[in-house]
């Protein structure tokens, strides 16, 4: 059984078909790339999976369970995490607290524990803090733990988005253009990071990216969207030679 599956999923915005008839299935442990020109509907795929914009038609399933109709926070608690193309950190909170906020569903204590500062509260706060610091260490952000998230440079903010998503303990990680705005050195570092965390945390990754280099390096399989429809699927090598893909990209002048 596929870990994550989209069955004939469509999403309309008024008369606009942002996504039509998407079939997609991710197996446990895969790293799959989702590419396509601007406005192709890539972010919409993430919004549909995470419940931000429920599908107009079709079904999304996680481990065989239908997610349609669930609130985003429930879907996240079931094991899907994501980052945002237009970074959406909790800007006024510290870097550390951004990560800890995402641990709330498994904080393990109730309001009364918090108000009375019980022993359980103290222990879980320490544990969550240590776990968050370890995640920040992993994402090379440990020295910024106590800075405001909004004060970080762009590349750091992108990595913090990933750290925060990991803090939800996901099975599936959705990364929306994680390298956007990064310089080539940062992109190389990011490729290694994503490869590393996918392995260590046993993650299944769906990755949207514009930078071909990153996708070719990281993904075993690619899905290409254009005007809301899948126009090609295959290995990076196959996709590079696919005439429809070249046309879609050249037509928009991207490549």
């Amino acid at each position: 059984m596929a870990l994550l599956e989209c069955r004939n999923v469509s999403r309309h915005f008024g008369g606009l078909r942002a996504l039509s008839g998407l079939d997609l299935s991710l197996e446990q442990g895969e790293v799959v790339g989702l590419i396509g020109p601007n406005g192709a509907g890539k972010t919409t795929v993430f919004n549909v999976i995470t419940g931000v914009f429920p599908p107009t038609e079709g079904e999304v399933l996680l481990e065989g369970r239908v997610l349609n109709g669930l609130k985003p926070y429930r879907i996240t608690q079931l094991g899907i995490a994501r980052t945002f193309q237009n970074i959406r950190l909790f800007r006024e909170m510290s870097v550390l607290h951004n990560v800890m906020a995402a641990m709330h569903p498994r904080c393990g204590y109730g309001l009364v524990d918090a108000l009375l500062r019980t022993a359980r509260f103290g222990r879980r706060e320490r544990e969550m803090r240590d776990e968050a610091l370890a995640l920040l260490e992993r994402m090379n952000l440990a020295d910024r733990a106590h800075d405001k998230a909004g004060s970080l440079p762009y590349g750091d903010q992108r990595r913090l988005e990933i750290a925060r998503a990991l803090a939800t303990h996901p099975k599936v990680l959705l990364l929306d253009e994680p390298a956007a705005g990064m310089n080539p050195a940062e992109v190389d570092e990011l490729v290694e990071l994503i490869r590393g965390i996918a392995g260590d945390f046993g993650l299944t990754v769906l990755l949207i990216e514009h930078q071909m280099g990153l996708v070719m390096n990281l993904c075993e399989r690619l899905v290409v969207l254009d005007f809301g429809e899948v126009i090609a699927k295959g290995t990076p090598g196959e996709i590079q030679r696919n005439p429809r893909v070249l046309e879609a990209y050249l037509g928009k002048g991207v490549v």
Binding site: T76, R88, A102, H104, R124
Partner: peptide, 29 residues
């Protein structure tokens, strides 16, 4: 003070900062 400095308090602040992101991080806004 105890509320604000707890996981529940962080959830409240996260909602203030970005409700959509808080929702996506598993917080029942």
């Amino acid at each position: 003070r105890n509320l604000v400095n707890s996981s529940h308090g962080r959830s409240c602040i996260a909602v203030r900062e970005d409700e959509v992101a808080a929702d996506i991080m598993g917080i029942d806004t």
